[in-house]
């Protein structure tokens, strides 16, 4: 399936996500691929904050917000319950942000991986706690300014979530980007057909938090892959395959410089040189 023959029905709409939101695009496309017999499970985070405000509820399929740390554990119970109820051909799909996955939700995900539950876990990674106002998460890249790394930028590497889940022996893992939707769709389709824990980590730029125009989301998500800061790859049968090689690594500096979140760092370095700090 490609973008042009996606299901025309919408399953996630009428929400109040920021213009150009990469996360909402990741959820919207995923539900079109996964279909109406999908139960969406979302922890506290951007997508639940923008989509679940009674009485304006934005999922056309069954959906549930979980406690922040509980995406995977609720998915486990839900899958077991639906199976026990006699349901067949359904998908329990989680959509958690980077903080909900790599920080507060990692323990519950670890439990689900240990059990090998039949769930599809999608991490939409916008690289900080965005809906609370851009605080650093375990997936914030080094050098990125957030409201809790306000001057120097984050000083720690991004946790390698795909490697973490692969080390736990999941059935299928992949990284994707909302800049390459056909690749993302292909991975969703594959995950749909595999039994066990499936994990897709999709880069979902946040114009608000990254310091970009709302029309730059897809372009920057594509560029991240092209310059080599985000890899498109798949883990199957114990092996990783890279799906796309960087095509213009020479544009890396331009890619970094165009994002507002990396700009303060140079300002700080300048301040530093001037002995102001």
């Amino acid at each position: 399936m490609a973008v042009k023959n996606l299901d025309e029905r919408e399953f996630f709409f009428g929400h109040k996500a920021c213009a150009g939101c990469g996360g909402s695009l990741a959820v919207r496309i995923a539900l079109k691929v996964l279909g109406e017999r999908t139960v969406a499970v979302l922890p506290a985070g951007c997508m639940s904050a923008v989509g679940f405000n009674f009485p304006q509820l934005c999922f056309a399929n069954n959906a549930f917000i979980t406690p922040f740390a509980a995406t995977a554990s609720v998915m486990t119970g839900l899958e077991a319950g639906l199976r026990r109820r006699g349901e067949k051909d359904f998908i329990v799909a989680g959509f958690a942000g980077d903080g909900g996955t790599a920080d507060i939700g990692l323990q519950a995900l670890s439990g689900a991986m240990d059990r090998g539950d039949n769930i599809l876990y999608i991490c939409y990674d916008n690289e900080a706690y965005m809906n609370t106002g851009i605080q650093k998460s375990g997936l914030t890249p080094p050098g990125a300014k957030t409201s809790t790394t306000p001057h120097r930028g984050s000083r720690r590497p991004k946790k390698d979530m795909p490697a973490i889940v692969a080390a736990n022996g999941v059935s299928y893992a992949a990284s994707a980007s909302v800049g390459y939707l056909d690749d993302y769709i292909k991975k969703l389709e594959k995950a749909k057909s595999v039994v066990g824990v499936k994990y897709i980590h999709v880069l979902a730029p946040c114009p608000t938090g990254w310091g970009l125009g709302s029309d730059e989301t897809v372009e920057i998500a594509k560029e991240a892959v092209d310059v080599g800061v985000w890899e498109l790859k798949e883990y199957e049968n114990g092996r990783w395959t890279v799906n796309r090689k960087p095509t213009r690594p020479q544009d890396l500096e331009r890619h970094i410089d165009r994002q507002g979140r990396f700009r303060i760092q140079s300002q700080y370095q300048e301040d530093s040189r001037n002995g102001q700090r």
Partner: peptide, 8 residues
């Protein structure tokens, strides 16, 4: 289909 666990 229903939405559960919403904000109020």
């Amino acid at each position: 289909p229903r939405n559960f666990g919403f904000s109020a």
